[in-house]
Amino acid sequence: MVSSTSEPTVVRVSQKGQATIPKGLREKFGIETPGEVFVYEDEGRIVVEPVPSPDELHGIHAEGHERGEATERLRELRDEEKRREAKRAERLRPSEDE
């Protein structure tokens, strides 16, 4: 059975504050298990982002790269995710006709 990763899923939070990221989302975003993710607040929402793999950041400190380039790439990835989330929120928002 193929499941959609764009529909909200209810996830239980344990007494220790732990929640499991659904398998479809882990696979889609390349989150390894065990692994690490960034977790932060943005505009009143909790955001979970995969930490870029060493391959994605390979050579970032090599000659010819500017200082802060890795940070800028992370910002680009976060901005891209924000745009996807905004589109998703717009789709889920009830229309004024309803």
Rank of each mutant, 00 (worst) to 15 (best):
2 V>K: 12
4 S>F: 07
5 T>E: 08
5 T>P: 04
6 S>I: 07
6 S>K: 11
7 E>I: 10
8 P>S: 02
9 T>P: 00
10 V>K: 14
12 R>H: 10
13 V>A: 02
16 K>N: 15
17 G>A: 12
20 T>G: 09
23 K>G: 03
23 K>F: 09
24 G>N: 06
25 L>I: 15
28 K>C: 06
28 K>S: 10
30 G>W: 07
33 T>K: 09
35 G>E: 05
36 E>H: 14
38 F>K: 03
39 V>W: 14
41 E>Q: 08
43 E>M: 15
43 E>T: 14
44 G>T: 04
44 G>P: 08
45 R>Y: 12
46 I>A: 13
48 V>D: 07
48 V>I: 14
48 V>N: 06
49 E>V: 04
52 P>L: 03
53 S>H: 03
54 P>T: 02
56 E>K: 03
57 L>Y: 00
57 L>F: 01
58 H>N: 10
59 G>L: 04
60 I>Y: 02
60 I>F: 08
61 H>V: 06
61 H>T: 11
62 A>N: 12
63 E>D: 09
63 E>S: 08
64 G>D: 01
65 H>Y: 15
65 H>L: 01
65 H>E: 02
69 E>K: 09
69 E>L: 08
69 E>R: 08
70 A>P: 01
71 T>G: 14
71 T>M: 14
72 E>D: 13
76 E>Y: 15
81 E>N: 09
82 K>W: 09
82 K>N: 04
84 R>F: 05
84 R>G: 00
84 R>L: 09
85 E>I: 05
87 K>F: 06
87 K>V: 14
88 R>W: 01
89 A>D: 10
93 R>Y: 05
94 P>G: 08
95 S>C: 02
